[in-house]
Design a protein around this nucleic acid. Structure first.
Lengths: 340, 340
DNA sequence: TTGTACGCGTTATCAC
DNA sequence: GTGATAACGCGTACAA
């Protein structure tokens, strides 16, 4: 491997001078600067970032932990994060927990051994608490994104899940629906709880009765497909069938629609389906779902911004910041008035 | 930061003993092993991988460079690669070139400074040659994936683009089409050339005349959206309009269909559209496109396998391997007999 | 079974 | 302007 010493020898200077040329620090005569540069080119020198971070005590790497790499919400968020990080001279180390606290724990070990400068963290759920405490113990700055964890005080970028839920459910009410089911993620995830609350608020606001049998707790992850099938089964077996479903995220909605169709039911003719989070408009031919779309890209870029501010100590002792980005109701064909 | 010295002091042993406990090397009495382990727990010790890789001269990190992170073909490939890498104790550093040789070059600099143990490389095109030569100069093993680069001899995992193209075009012929347009990627990319050849072969096999005006060179990247619009415009202005389009990848097809629809044309009623590569079946409600699907996941896992074999020198001097994975024709609604 | 000395590639500090 | 030296955290070779 080519090191600064190889460069130094060939250029008849000390290693220190080479280092100064590389980093543009200190005063160097133009003559030597040019010569050193030239030797570096010749030998195809590339600095060793391991050695550098060992002495500098910083890696300029940030970790991004998301819960579902197949979900366009998170891939878009990731792009926002990457763009923002690159712009500030940081690289991003991606990890994907698949909504699984176990995997999350494994990845965290890697992240710690890499000595990343900070972590942008979308927790799998409330059980992620130990992981966050570990980060805290190690003095690694982190920012929560998309989801909160009770007991953790830190900078956070969130959507307004309650508002979005209300918007969606009220949209259904306006269409004339009165029996709306909630197909929710796990109640161990803050967004699921908030969407639950928004749903309940909407019912109350419109003086509609509460019915436990209309609430189904599945899970956000791909793993919970079986649960959705079962929920749909129970939903349809109800004495008074719901005429619409509010799904807590895009994949839940997709799977619900598929489950309905497999049973010969048409959306929106037989049931309406609405949900949180959009799909990637670029790779969908016929956008179909009525959604509360979230600014996923901004989730990522804002998160990185908060994180880097913390790292640079700009915000050293400042109180935690909580940024809430509003959702946008987008009405499409999956919602329609109920069959009379 | 907690180091092995901190552990050593607290456990009343030397740093070396701690190192041995961590790596399970050498003989250590059970008593000290337990004590050291305990102190490590107490102090939440995590090894510093920068320091380790500095002395070991290996990082156990592999780089995966893909050209379009929004394309499900590549995200699926990435999952395959990650699973295979994790299984063998390697981590993956993702980079996304957006089909841009410039970005590719930037990322390569990072990759080199990270001293990754190997690179799984999906080149933006033939112009990626200098990057590959650079890797070679630095003695970093690499495997090409999905695309070849003329002048580069190395292990490769490819699809059978010629066969896939022929299957798709012959499918159109069987439906009765005689004028089939080719909406291709850049001819600076090997797969585009192969798909071109397959298209030409199919014509020849069926004694159909060659027509230059039916061939359009756009680009695989998201950036070439304008080009597609223009190609469609020219295509429809032709004296004898084609009745079907073979698009060289999924996104080209998607954009073509959208462009047709904007002009009031229906697919497949007015024109059929077929393409290479599928979309993610999980996030699509109504699979519509007739495609030549490729085993994207296996592209990734096979690639990592070849790469790690090379790294471990198992295949040190062995001749380069070229693995070709066949496509699978999947007929859906986007193709139908031409209007008579 | 355990410890000492050294080196991995880089930069900060201080001296010239 | 430039250089010598030590230090970052860890593992190898050799010694005890």
């Amino acid at each position: 491997m080519i090191t600064i010493y190889d460069i130094a020898k060939k250029a008849n200077v000390s290693a220190m001078t080479v280092s100064r040329v590389i980093n543009n620090t200190g005063r160097i005569s133009e003559k030597t600067r040019v010569r050193v540069r030239q030797v570096m080119e010749e030998l195809h020198y590339v600095p060793n970032s391991a050695a550098r971070s060992l002495v500098l005590q910083e890696t300029r790497i940030l970790s991004l932990l998301i819960t579902d790499i197949t979900n366009p919400f998170y891939t878009t968020l990731a792009r926002g994060a990457e763009d923002a990080a690159m712009k500030r001279g940081y690289r991003l180390l991606f990890s994907n927990s698949d909504e699984d606290v176990g995997k999350e724990k494994e990845y965290l070990e890697m992240v710690l051994s890499t000595r990343v400068d900070g972590v942008l963290f979308s927790p799998a759920g409330d059980n992620s608490l130990p992981q966050l405490e570990k980060l805290h113990k190690h003095g690694i700055p982190f920012v929560l994104i998309d989801r909160e964890v009770p007991g953790v005080e830190c900078d956070t970028v969130l959507g307004d899940s309650r508002l979005g839920a209300r918007l969606l459910v009220e949209h259904l009410f306006q269409l004339g629906h009165r029996r709306v089911a909630l197909l929710n993620g796990s109640m161990k995830v803050s967004t699921a709880r908030e969407r639950f609350t928004g749903y309940a608020e909407a019912l109350k606001l419109h003086d509609l009765p509460w019915d436990d049998r209309l609430v189904f707790e599945a899970g956000y992850g791909r793993a919970s497909l079986g649960t959705i099938e079962e929920a749909v089964e129970r939903m349809l077996a109800l004495p008074e069938r719901p005429t619409a479903v509010f799904a807590a995220n895009n994949f839940l909605a997709l799977d619900a629609v598929k489950a309905f169709r497999r049973r010969g039911l048409d959306v929106p003719h037989d049931l309406s389906v609405v949900c949180f989070d959009d799909l990637d408009p670029n790779s969908v031919l016929d956008p179909f779902l009525t959604v509360a779309a979230q600014p996923a890209y901004e989730f990522g870029s804002m998160g990185i911004r908060l994180l880097i501010d913390r790292i640079h100590g700009v915000e050293a002792g400042s109180p935690r910041k909580k940024i809430v980005l509003p959702p946008k109701l987008t009405v499409r064909q999956s919602s329609a008035p109920p069959r009379s």
